[in-house]
Design a protein around this nucleic acid. Structure first.
Lengths: 200, 200
DNA sequence: AGGATAAATTAACAACTGTTCATATATACT
DNA sequence: AGTATATATGAACAGTTGTTAATTTATCCT
């Protein structure tokens, strides 16, 4: 089947490109290196992609596939700490997922250089999470579970350490250093934060 | 004076290089573009620097000039919230400083690609701040000012939002968006955090 | 089997990269 | 003023970049 074979090469290109982009960024990755990693000549790449940027866009296409598909925040948020713990479990899973980590590396490298990527990060990652958490904290305040404050600011305070820990995980993994000590930070964050805002 | 003139050109090279590195990263900045920005030919650069990397190292040399020269943490930390507020004032000043912001951009771009820069970031920025804050929180716990917890973890929780807000400031500034809303986050963080850990 | 289509190869292109060289010009010191 | 030194220039280098074209090889469909 030609469709199958085409698909195989194209998949291999995306996979190899993803690894190289994650290591050396967009500018530091040449089409020749991608082709070489796949095992073909550089000109063969152009049978599958229009140009280098098209490869990059395909690699980046599922950077922001949101894993936090919360449906009933109004109800779930009433569970208080359990809701936050669930959120962090998802966040932690993403942080330690091998493929997601590569995409995270690419995002961090290009974040300050690529306007589109930057906008997507702010919209799809930051604002989306902030909106979700803001709504949850608002519900918790109304339910008398936590002390009253600005929900959106509280969301920022809750999200920021998660991002920081994720970045640290990524940095440690680049240098092949153990991340076991970092692993517990996520759960400790939930405990610490809940202790900070809960009404006992 | 030739020394003066030399110094002028060399300073101009560093300045131009810093701006270009902050915009396009190391690989995205060519020696020709640096020279062009200075107003000289590329070959003239090599009268002042051995090679491109030497320029980069000179630009990066004061990325990690620690602004937090706390001498008497043992005493200062006993001031509790005021100590934290002072720390955040320093952090905020750095975050909004134009030159420091450019260096921060360079660091963020190269952080995942340059092992030396990464090590310096972890040592000089992260660990140093964590060590300082850990000691301060430890003193505060002993003084009965704040609730008991793991000082180092508490330091992480305190530092992480500051870093996240600084990153947001940088991202907003790249796209020339107003950072007034972000500006208050630093102070709000101190209030919120102190409210979370203080023993009333 | 044979023609159509997809995917690979080899070769080449223009532009750009970091760097070096020989040379010219400007500045400093005696 | 004249010489030494510092700094600039123009040209060239070998290598790499993204991309294209012509051509060969492999796969698919009837």
């Amino acid at each position: 089947m030609p469709v199958n074979r085409t698909s195989k090469t194209k998949t291999a290109i995306v996979k190899s490109a993803m690894e190289l982009f994650a290591l050396h960024g967009y500018k530091g990755t040449s089409v020749r290196k991608i082709a070489s990693k796949v095992g073909i000549r550089e000109s063969a790449l152009y049978n599958h992609f229009k140009n280098k940027e098209a490869i990059f866009l395909t690699v980046c296409s599922d950077i922001f596939t949101t894993p936090f598909a919360q449906k009933n925040i109004q109800d779930d948020a009433k569970k208080g700490k359990k809701f936050l713990a669930g959120f962090v479990v998802q966040y932690k899973l993403v942080s330690f997922d091998t493929k997601k980590e590569k995409l995270f590396r690419i995002m961090m490298i290009e974040l300050l250089q690529d306007p589109v990527l930057r906008k997507n990060f702010l919209d799809e990652s930051h604002h989306r999470n902030i909106a979700l958490l803001s709504e949850a904290f608002f519900v918790m305040m109304q339910s008398g579970l936590i002390r009253s404050s600005d929900p959106m600011f509280m969301a920022n305070e809750f999200l920021a350490p998660l991002f920081y820990y994720r970045l640290q995980v990524t940095l440690f993994r680049i240098d092949s250093e153990p991340t076991t000590a970092l692993s517990t930070l996520f759960e400790k964050h939930v405990d610490f934060f809940w202790e900070s805002i809960a009404i006992h």
